[in-house]
Design a protein around this nucleic acid. Sequence first.
RNA 1: GCGCCCGUAGCUCAGUCAGGAUAGAGCAGCGGUUUCCUAAACCGCAGGCCGGAGGUUCGAGUCCUCCCGGGCGCACCA
Length: 545
Amino acid sequence: MQLEARARAAISQALRRLGVDCPADLPLERPRPEFGDLSTRVAFPLSRQLGRPPQEIASELAAALQGHLDFAAVKAVGGFLNLQFTPAALHEVLQEILRQGGDYGRQDLGRGRHLQVEFVSSNPTGPLTVGHGRQAALGDVIAALFSELGWRVTREYYLNDEGKQIDLLAQSLWARYRQALGEEAAIPEGGYQGDYLIPIGEELAQGWGDRYPQFDEAARVAFRKAAVGRMMRLIEEDLEAFGVRFDVWTREGDLHRRGLVRETLEELRRRGATYEKEGAVWLRSTDYGLSRDPVLIRSDGTPTYLMVDIAYHVDKFRRGFVKVIDVQGADHAEEQQQVKLALRLLGLPEGFLEYCVHQFVTLKGREGLERMSTRAGHFIRLGDLIRELGRDVVRYFMVRRKPESHLVFDYELAKKTSMDNPVYYVQYAHTRIASIFREAGKSATRDALGVTGVDLSLLTDPNELALIKELDRFPEVIVQASRFAPHLLCEYLEGIAALFHPYYARVRILGQGEATPARLALLLGVQLVLKRGLAILGVSAPKEM
RNA sequence: GCGCCCGUAGCUCAGUCAGGAUAGAGCAGCGGUUUCCUAAACCGCAGGCCGGAGGUUCGAGUCCUCCCGGGCGCACCA
C-alpha cells in the first residue's frame, strides 16, 4: 500500500509533465517479478486520448521518472511502465510498518458505523454439522475483517424457536422419551431420526417418569421447551469450542411480541406490494421479475418464515445498522431475492442488506461421506470434527476456499501435522520467529534490543526485500478479503510463510554482527503480520508448538 | 422446464468483480541437498487446446450469446 502510494505520487507528477491529469483510478498492479515491483498500463487508455502509440507515452513517462529516488529502475516495455523500487524505499516501508506495530493493517473505512453480521442462525433442531462450520467460520472471519476496517460490528444469531419444525422435533423427542420408558413409540413422519435425541429422551424419562403418556398439548409445550433448550446447549457448546461468540441472539418469538410482523405487513400492503388469494396474502414478486409470488400470510392467518424474515430485517434497519450482512447457504438463494425485493419495496436503502452465499461442504477421507441431513440423522457433528482436528485447522480449512465454490474438506491433509498442512505451514513460520526471539533474548548482547534505530540498509538479500514488499500488501489484502473473500487472506499468509521458510533455512539470523538487528527487525515485521492475519482468522499464533 | 452458483495441471484450488506482457499455488509424481537459531525441512524438474463453439476488442481464463457437464433451489417448511 505504501508502495502504491509512492508510485502514484511519482507517476502523477510525471503525467503532469506530459500535460495530462492523473486518472483517479490509476491502474497499478504487481506484475511478475522479472518486470519489476509495480507496473502501470496507464499508457493504453492515454493512447486513445492523446492519439499516440502507448509505447511512446510509456517511454516519455519513463524518461520523466529517471533519477527518482524511489526507483532503482524504470522501464517502458510494450506500453507498460515497470517500476522497481530501491532497497532504501523498501527499508522505509518496513520502518513504517514497525512504527505502526499492532495497529498495522487497521483502517478506518467504516468510520465507526454499525454493521451487523448474521450467521449460523441454525434452527435448534439438532447439533451443528460440518456445513454449519463453514458458515460459522465465514461469518466470524468476515465480522473480524470489517472490525479491522473500522466498522462497529455486531455478530448476531437468529433463533427460530417456533413453527412446525420445532413441533416435529418435540414429537421426535417425545418418541425417544417413550422408547426410554420401554414403549414402541415411532419417530413421526418427517421427524428427526438422529441418535442425539436418545440420551435426552432417557434423561427426561428419568426426570418425568410417565407424566406424558400421550403427545397432547401439555406434552407438546413441555417437549418443545425441553428440546429447544437442549439443542441450544449443544449448539452453544460447539460454537464455544469453535471460538465463535455472538453479541446478540434474536428469537423469532420476540419479533412477534413486539408487533413487528404485523406492522411490516401493513406497510407492504399500504405500498401495494401484496394481494390476497385463496385466503392467503402474497407478495407481488413476479411484477418485479422474480419467478414466483411467495405467500406471506397463510390462509390460517399465521405468517410464513419469509414474512418474519422481512420484518426482522426492517428491525435491523431501525436498530441503526448502516449495513447488514447475512451469511447463508446456497439453498436459500430464492428467499434472498424475495427479502431483498421486499426491502426495496419498503424503501430501505439499496445495498443495506448483502448476502454472503456459500456452497456446501463435503468431507473427503473420513467416514460418513454421504450427504448430510439433520432430519435423517446423517451428518457429522462440527463438534466431533473440532475434537479430532483442533479448532485452528477446522476454522482455517473452512475459509480457505472462496465461499461460492463447493468446498471439499480434505480430512487426510487436515490431519497432518507437517508443513504440508497449510495451517501449520503458516503457524510454524510464526513459531520459528518466536523461537529466534527467545534465543536472541537468551544470548544477551544487543541482538535482542529494540528495533528502533536499527540500520535497515543491511537488508539486501532478495528474499528480505521480497518479504518487505509482501508485508506492504497486508492492508490491501484485508480490504479485498472483506469482500466475502477470506480465502485471499489465507493465500496471502501462506505466501508470506513461503517466502520466510526458505529464507530461514538459508540465512542465519543470530550472531551475524551488524546484520543481526536488521534481520530481527524484518522478522518482527513478518511476525506482526502473521499474528494479525491469524488473529483475524481466529487461528492461534503459537510461540512454540 | 425456469432461476442462481461452479467447470483452470492427476487431485484440491487461486486468478474472473475493475480485460493486458510467456496462465499460478499446494498436494501427489520424479530428481537432488540437509538435520543447523527450527515443529517435522530446502532446492529443482515435469505436468494446462483455462468444459465446448461463436462474438466484442489492438488484446479474452477474465466481457457477451449459445451449448455441454455438476451442485442448489423452484412449499400456505424453515
